[in-house]
Amino acid sequence: MLGKTAGGLYWMFRYLERSENNARLLEAGFRIALTRSAAAEDEWMSVIQTAGVQTGFLERHDTADSSTVTDYLLRDKTNPSSVISVIEASRNNARLVRTALTREVWEATNECWLTLKDALARPVRDRELPEVLGLIRQQSALVRAALHGTMLRNDIYDFARIGTFLERADNTARILDVKYYVLLPSVMHVGSSLDNVQWETILRSVSAQRAYRWLHGGDINSRGIAEFLISDRRLPRSLVFCYTKIVDNLAYLAEDYGVREECHVKADEVLGRLRGHTIETIFEQGLHEFLEEFIRDNNALAGQIEQDYRFYG
């Protein structure tokens, strides 16, 4: 496979994952704003922070409210992380690697782009938001389904999956980091009665509120949530889950190509560190420091994979 093709597959699925994450962030923010109008502006700003686009947002808008945030995260082309930007980037990468995709995957990606381009052609009003967000989730799910249902399990698939999980791990870590920062006062009072709605946004941002309830009943607390999102190997958006997948997919590549590269060592190290921690040691070290280090490691691994598999010249 061409190095460029491996890179294209990896980015195609990183961007696709990002579009879904953005939609979910917005959904969580929207919900909070609906239920707690007093804190709405703070909540909208925290959505922008979590998406990591604060600087760009403040250049375009003075206030964070449902219409400015929605517009910036969904359809502003000056925002490289907006849904329309990442869907376009995902589809451009798909065009680049067209020969590596089945007709089903390509058509689902193209359809996803056509549908969302259309849905996001005009500003999205509050009452249309749930429908549009649903559409974004549905369209990216169709692409993923086509991938799972029709693609050979070979290096093509591996690069697609590695892109997906690197992006997802980065996203989960950032949500946890920003949200904890916002909620810091309540973290200091572990054991005191927590603001349930706020905590639920974290879970909602990663589509894990029901999963958490199944596993932990009604007991929502900060440590429980952090542990769930970092270490639970059953949760498909936890850091441990993402890294288990990354390590697996890299291992398939090593087996396929008959060579272990530097990135294999790095990925194993990150997973080892994640597993070596308990929630207690994480909180001792400081959650923020822990997550910061993780995001750095994750970026470094991404760079190493690019280099080892010759994505660029």
Partner: peptide, 9 residues
């Protein structure tokens, strides 16, 4: 020869 850059060289 003309060679293409693949994931394996």
């Amino acid at each position: 020869r003309i060679a293409m850059r693949t994931t394996r060289g």
